[in-house]
Design a protein around this nucleic acid. Structure first.
Ligand SMILES: NC(=O)c1ccc[n+]([C@@H]2O[C@H](COP(=O)([O-])OP(=O)(O)OC[C@H]3O[C@@H](n4cnc5c(N)ncnc54)[C@H](O)[C@@H]3O)[C@@H](O)[C@H]2O)c1
Ligand SMILES: NC(=O)c1ccc[n+]([C@@H]2O[C@H](COP(=O)([O-])OP(=O)(O)OC[C@H]3O[C@@H](n4cnc5c(N)ncnc54)[C@H](O)[C@@H]3O)[C@@H](O)[C@H]2O)c1
Lengths: 231, 231
DNA sequence: ACGCGCTTGTGAACGCGCGCACAAAGTCGG
DNA sequence: CCGACTTTGTGCGCGCGTTCACAAGCGCGT
């Protein structure tokens, strides 16, 4: 998580004893690999094979799965269907989550037209933009709504996740409006650090950050290579 | 980093003693905050203020900065310009990195037209696509090239970073071609786990993953709220 | 029925990263 | 020139996450 680094512990009645944060971040990867296996017709899979497909170590995978109480069968492996069910339910994918997308520009339009949402249990319920020229436009089968409709849309459509795809300048304002409307989970594509009250989760996806991290390693590799050459 | 979890240590001759991985991931955030401060005319900044702007604790920030040997002035703070220089050079932003973008679809076009690249020291050198109908098209001032031009483009344009924006199906193939062409740093938007030889870095940006992680926390918050109500 | 081989689940050790708290160091006013 | 105040740099303890290695468990063939 990006805000409080606390574990998702809580000892919720008879529920799970709490799933570590790092594990939660990997569950979607496992889930995707499992779906791929199911599509090929496999019904069981060993931790070794699944770990390979997910790009992690097998021990890590087993420990991750043990955290959500899901049991495999020793000597055989995990039942693919059962594991899909367990992980999905842990991630809260039993229900369809409604998403509101704010900022229908370059990126926003690509996101709106993206099919990968619906496949994974998410529904783009509405598109919102501040530009009066854009309001009323139809994008990906949805009419773009003005900002002031946000509270109503969130309420009527049962929206619980907000996606921000506006320039960095407007991001904090949009964020505040989303929070005011009752949204407690935000995915932020704008290169800005958002200030939110406790209880609200923000995940930031920053393309430039990723490139700069790559740049660092590339730089280091180049320096290392030069050193070897000069040696 | 997504592959080996090793620290960027190396004790490179007279160079830096090695910057922790977690620190590297935060440097771009600091850099952006510093640029914002510089734009407002500030010449110095305290760790407290910069930490606030970057959304981290001040102690963490100071420790991060100490790792790259950059010195502030006690009682005053850090010189904004100097810090920008130090961080930029650590990240390897002294030079302009050339990027090749593979997959000029929905997302690829948004990326190609994105201005945030050039601002941060990255140049989209070429666009590549497998679809013959798309090859020859001009997007964002660049002509879309066929896949087989990849080695030539990488060589001639000095490309060192590849961005994959193709469907998951073709991602591994594209990845292999990029690696074969000499690219050692890859940013992958396709929902697939890429297999790469050692020495190649892959960073994955998976939108669905992020949403599912948010979904988990939302789910947990809802369960917690219900519990409180029923109590 | 029984042992053999395979795979899970986990105990334990380790390393990394985080945050606290404070001494060192520099500035500024008098 | 000095003393008080501000802010950095970091030593240290702690908790999380990763990894190794192995005992426990299960199926299968005989
Ligand atoms: N385009 C990309 O490939 C890309 C990649 C990575 C990150 N980003 C980031 O995503 C964000 C959007 O990028 P883009 O290229 O789509 O920009 P864009 O300018 O094309 O679109 C921005 C949209 O947001 C709307 N908007 C502006 N202020 C608003 C506000 N206060 N409330 C609601 N809507 C508002 C604008 O009307 C416009 O439609 C930017 O922060 C950008 O840095 C973009
Ligand atoms: N559109 C989005 O908002 C979005 C969001 C998150 C992730 N993604 C992911 O990004 C990727 C691209 O999404 P998109 O919506 O742009 O898809 P798209 O179908 O619009 O575009 C894919 C492009 O890649 C090209 N392509 C296909 N196979 C290729 C190959 N082997 N080599 C080179 N080019 C090839 C196609 O010709 C097409 O132009 C997908 O993996 C998708 O899951 C998209």
């Amino acid at each position: 998580m990006s805000e409080q680094g606390s574990r998702a512990v809580g000892r919720a009645g008879a529920g799970r004893p709490g799933v570590p944060n790092a594990t939660v971040a990997r569950l979607p990867v496992y889930l995707r690999a499992l779906h791929a296996l199911a599509d090929v017709g496999r019904t069981t899979v060993s931790s070794e094979a699944l770990a390979e497909a997910a790009g992690v170590g097998s021990a890590k995978l087993r420990k991750d799965l043990s955290h959500l109480g899901s049991y495999g069968t020793r000597g055989v492996g995990y039942d693919v269907g059962e594991l899909v069910h367990h992980i999905s339910s842990t991630l809260g994918l039993g229900q369809r989550w409604s998403v509101v997308l704010v900022g229908v520009g370059n990126l926003g339009q690509a996101l709106a037209g993206y099919g990968g949402f619906d496949d994974r249990g998410f529904r783009v319920a509405a598109l919102v933009d501040a530009d009066p020229a854009r309001v009323g436009e139809v994008v990906a089968g949805l009419t773009v709504l003005p900002l002031q409709d946000l509270p109503r849309v969130v309420r009527e459509q049962g929206v619980s996740i907000g996606v921000i795809a506006t320039p960095a300048t407007g991001a904090q304002d949009v964020c505040d409006r989303l929070v005011a409307a009752g949204v407690r989970s935000i995915l932020n594509f704008a290169p800005a650090v958002l200030q939110v009250p406790p209880g609200v989760d923000v995940r930031r996806v920053d393309l430039s950050n990723e490139l700069q991290i790559l740049s660092f390693h590339e730089h280091r590799k180049a320096a290392l290579a030069d050193q070897v050459v000069s040696a």
